[in-house]
């Protein structure tokens, strides 16, 4: 039973004994190896690595997506899923923020949930809408009251374009506060939106000129699919420090080919130093992004960068 019969809810005696024999004091990495239920891999073409790296996921959300009951909407369920895939830190936004006009309430709930049920894994990223009056106060609360290292923006859902003058101001203030700004390029494929929504894709073209004026800004594009970045890729890579995630990177061997500049969905290359792991869980299964790391023949060095190194550096440079 190599993959584990995940449908079965019963626990037979052998499984029960195996599970209870794992001592609580065993380090989390070792426990994870036992808990995969996939069996140990002996050869498989993988050289044994001491202390295999854990992953920092820069793109998860808590709670329910407004248009679907999600399988792992419960924080405890999401955390169990992340742990199964060796994810030890996750930058968490809130689905509440996507369509909620009381953003501070949403940010407060996110902060409390991460503190109470995050098991030290979840790092809250609140949201601010620069097109709304007094966004500065929302940003201040995210930073000072909720101690968030960054904010996540949803321009498509919040109704502004990237040439909105207040977005430029937000980037300046966030940079002064040494906060990360994540911009969600997409939450869901526009072709399958609820009929009540009419949300166009984001035009990224104005972003690089905005960021050239703020070279210290730390901006990450999440769900940064090639077709959404389009012609802006070259300028963003060359002229800014923008980072990207891999949640929406498509194509066989997509991540490796993106680094090599041969992914046909992207009009150029993104160096491995600019790629951060992001899963878009629980909307996407987090297996999708984790498996992308193995679908491409990445080196150990590249894996370490994408799994945690780049995220750590990105976060650290804002503190």
């Amino acid at each position: 039973m190599p993959l584990g019969d995940t449908k079965s809810s019963t626990v037979d005696r052998r499984r029960f004994v195996q599970a209870t024999l794992i001592p609580i004091s065993v380090p989390i990495t070792a426990r994870l190896i036992h808990s995969t239920a996939l069996g140990a891999e002996s050869s498989q073409g993988a050289a044994p690595v001491e202390n295999p790296p854990s992953i920092t996921d820069t793109n998860v959300h808590l709670f329910d997506w407004p248009f679907r009951k999600l399988k792992h909407a419960q924080t405890s369920s999401l955390i169990a899923r992340l742990q199964k895939h060796r994810i030890e830190k996750a930058w968490a936004g809130s689905f509440d923020a996507v369509l909620n006009k009381q953003l501070d309430r949403s940010n407060q709930r996110l902060s409390e949930e991460c503190a109470k049920h995050g098991h030290g894994m979840l790092v809250p990223f609140g949201s601010v809408n620069p097109a709304w009056p007094d966004w500065e106060e929302d940003l201040r609360r995210c930073h000072e009251k909720y101690k968030m290292p960054g904010v996540r923006l949803y321009p498509a859902y919040h109704g502004y374009a990237l040439d909105h003058p207040e977005l430029a101001n937000l980037l300046v203030v966030a940079t002064q506060r040494k906060m990360i700004v994540q911009i969600a390029l997409r939450m869901e494929d526009e072709r399958v939106h609820h009929v009540a929504l009419n949300i166009p894709p984001i035009n990224l073209a104005p972003l690089s000129s905005r960021l050239k004026a703020i070279p210290q800004a730390r901006v990450q594009l999440i769900n940064s699919a090639g077709p959404l970045i389009g012609d802006s890729l070259g300028e963003l890579v060359r002229d800014t420090n923008v980072a990207f995630d891999i949640a929406a990177t498509e194509g066989n061997g997509g991540v490796g080919r993106l680094i090599a500049g041969s992914n046909p969905s992207y009009r150029g290359a993104i160096p491995s130093q600019r790629l951060l792991f992001g899963s878009h869980a629980p909307f996407f299964p987090c297996q999708s992004a984790v498996m992308k790391l193995f679908e491409s023949p990445l080196s150990l060095e590249q894996l370490k960068q994408i799994m945690y190194g780049n995220a750590r550096q990105f976060l650290g440079s804002n503190q």
């Binding site: 190599p2 994870l32 498989q44 993988a46 790296p53 895939h85 193995f294 990445l298």
Partner: peptide, 24 residues
């Protein structure tokens, strides 16, 4: 690169190994 070589084992990350995928 060799298609069957992996710098890290997928099993360490809660994923099926190549052998397990072949068995499917």
């Amino acid at each position: 690169p060799d298609p069957v070589e992996f710098a890290l084992s997928p099993a360490l990350y809660g994923l099926p190994t190549r052998d397990e995928l072949i068995k499917l």
